[in-house]
């Protein structure tokens, strides 16, 4: 596990690949190449990649791409999946409009 958070470790140069154009996050339209590049920019955890690129932060909330991003990151970082861990899980589990989430009332509506 010590390896995961070692920021100074060398993961080598970014090497362009044939399938870099492949779309991975369907909602935010992020490609495999962008994800791999983000890792070489120093985003070593799924949470960081998510904040940097918005992978898994679109409407579906990572339902579709979560596992794919994890696999790409693990491979790029030379880790096995279980070492990498998952991105944090937060409320709400599904996208909800802020109006609903905050139980906002229309003017004049009883609280």
């Amino acid at each position: 596990m010590h390896n995961v958070n070692n920021r100074s470790r060398d993961i080598g140069e970014f090497v362009p690949a044939e399938d870099d154009e492949l779309l991975i996050c369907r909602c935010e339209e992020i490609t495999k190449g962008e994800i791999r590049r983000a890792i070489h920019d120093g985003m070593f955890t799924l949470t960081e990649i998510r904040r940097y690129l918005r992978t898994g932060m679109g409407l579906c909330q990572g339902q579709t791409c979560g596992k794919l991003v994890k696999e790409i990151a693990a491979r790029e970082l030379g880790l096995v999946l279980s070492e990498l861990g998952n991105a944090s899980s937060r409320v709400p589990m599904r996208p909800i409009e802020m109006k609903v989430f905050g139980n906002e009332k229309e003017p004049g509506e009883n609280a």
């Binding site: 909602c27 935010e28 339209e29 409407l59 579906c60 339902q63």
Partner: peptide
């Protein structure tokens, strides 16, 4: 059609998870 690339999308999961069919 998507925001960034204007790519066409349709039904993908059919159970309300993927949001591709919005």
């Amino acid at each position: 059609h998507t925001q960034k690339y204007g790519a066409p999308r349709g039904i993908f999961c059919a159970i309300g998870r993927c949001t591709d069919c919005v």
